[in-house]
């Protein structure tokens, strides 16, 4: 994970571009079958582990390393993608919601913000500092946001 604390590092950008390039060359239609974990360009994170990603989404980690608050985004109307993403994190959607409800009851945090669709989500993320979300890879504009991770979409593969 790149330790980009105050500004977007050149190395982080290059890593993201290289990742996208590899995926574009290696896959037949990668954007259609793969889910990208995207974040605002200034998010000081690079290739977070599965555990780290889960900690962000359960609220166990609520700030980035640069001190900015982690802003979580979820999709409202895409069950398949949500299920695939949370499966990757090792949880079900319902379990995540139970966790978020617990956070809400304890006042320790709020559930992710809901985007109506992926376009809205990537657009919001590109504009919201500290935000993180997930969408199909082909919607992730590397010039506008940071692609932290690419995970296969089993639903698309099926």
């Amino acid at each position: 994970m790149c330790q980009c604390r105050t500004q977007i590092g050149l190395r982080c950008r290059l890593t993201s571009l290289a990742l996208l390039g590899v995926l574009a060359i290696g896959g037949l239609n990668p954007s259609a079958a793969q889910i990208a974990v995207v974040a605002h360009q200034q998010v000081p994170a690079d290739s977070p582990s599965r555990r780290e990603l889960l900690d962000y989404y359960t609220g166990d980690i609520q700030t980035w390393t640069n001190g900015r608050r982690v802003v979580l985004y979820d999709l409202r109307n895409n069950e398949q993608m949500r299920t695939a993403f949370y499966d990757y994190l090792g949880k079900t959607s319902s379990r995540m919601k139970a966790i978020w409800l617990r956070r809400k009851l304890s006042g320790e945090g709020a559930p992710p913000l809901l985007a109506d669709d992926e376009h809205q989500l990537v657009d919001t993320i590109s504009r919201t500092e500290g935000s993180i979300g997930f969408a199909h890879l082909d919607l992730a504009d590397s010039l506008k946001m940071k692609v932290l991770l690419v995970i296969p979409d089993p639903a698309e593969n099926n």
């Binding site: 079900t92 319902s94 919601k97």
Partner: peptide
């Protein structure tokens, strides 16, 4: 899950 959504 739907119950949890309502719970929020």
């Amino acid at each position: 899950e739907r119950y949890l959504d309502l719970s929020f």
